[in-house]
Amino acid sequence: MNSLHTYLFIALVLFCIGLFGLLKRRSLIGMLISVELMLNAVGLNFMAFNRFLAPDPAVGQVAVLFIMGIAAAEAAIALSLILALFRKIRSINVEQARQLKG
């Protein structure tokens, strides 16, 4: 368990699960949840490198912290947009939102 590769693989699996959800889920909120998973995976990656390789362990932590912050902000905007969309088309199904094409 104390190997870089273990953590990298955990992060990768998490990332891929998130990716799978992002591509599969039709609910926009579901997609957002998946994105959060992916961001967590990134955080794990940073922390793993930080733990095993980096000269200064603080840098990785800082990065993860900022990623969290941005993730929160992103979530706020995303959710408000999803709500706005819901008001317009009465659905948060992404496949319903296809007026723009071609």
């Binding site: 967590n40 955080g43 733990r51 993860v64 993730a71 929160a72 979530a75």
Partner: peptide
């Protein structure tokens, strides 16, 4: 938990705080 394993309790705390306390609630 993994963050704790990776040596940063602070981050673990922040993780729970931000994701569960803020994002999940917002969702």
């Amino acid at each position: 938990g993994l963050f704790i394993f990776l040596g940063s309790e602070f981050l673990a705390m922040m993780e729970i705080l931000i994701y569960i306390g803020a994002i999940s609630i917002a969702i």
